[in-house]
Amino acid sequence: MKEVTRRETLALGAAAGAAAMFAPYVAWAAVEEANALIAKFTGGKAATDGKITLQMPEIAENGSTVPLSVSVDSPMTKDNYVKRVIIVADGNPRPEVATFNFTPRSGVAEASTRMRLAKTQNIVAVAEMSDGSFHMTKRQVKVTIGGCGG
């Protein structure tokens, strides 16, 4: 077997480093795509912080099933309720996760599910209220093993 010289080792290392730096931008949906999705949901309106809570583990060992809980502070009456909550993941191959559609019958605006996370990333939840206002929250989840097949 041919011995690898010091010079070659350095070149290999540099090439691997460059590949690692650029790979995320090729393989994964960019943050911009996630932002575009949120802008589409709000119709370009600004979403304010607060009223909405997103519960997720800080570190997910297995990215293929990460628990997620979202709740919005609302009386859920016919005149004042949460219409929809969108969940967006800015580091998945496709940023859309799910949209929860609530009604005044829901009683409380709370829902839980389990989702896939390809890598460490931010999860954004945006709520649309019946009065046309929007509230959002963001949370980072660190992922040990990604969960998008492959």
Binding site: V66, N92, R94, A98, T99, F100, A111, T113, M115, R116
Partner: peptide, 16 residues
């Protein structure tokens, strides 16, 4: 719920 592929296998939902 409108579901996208990012929801895990054996989709679970809890609500009220």
């Amino acid at each position: 719920v409108d579901i996208d592929p990012a929801i895990s296998a054996n989709p679970y939902f809890q609500f009220s």
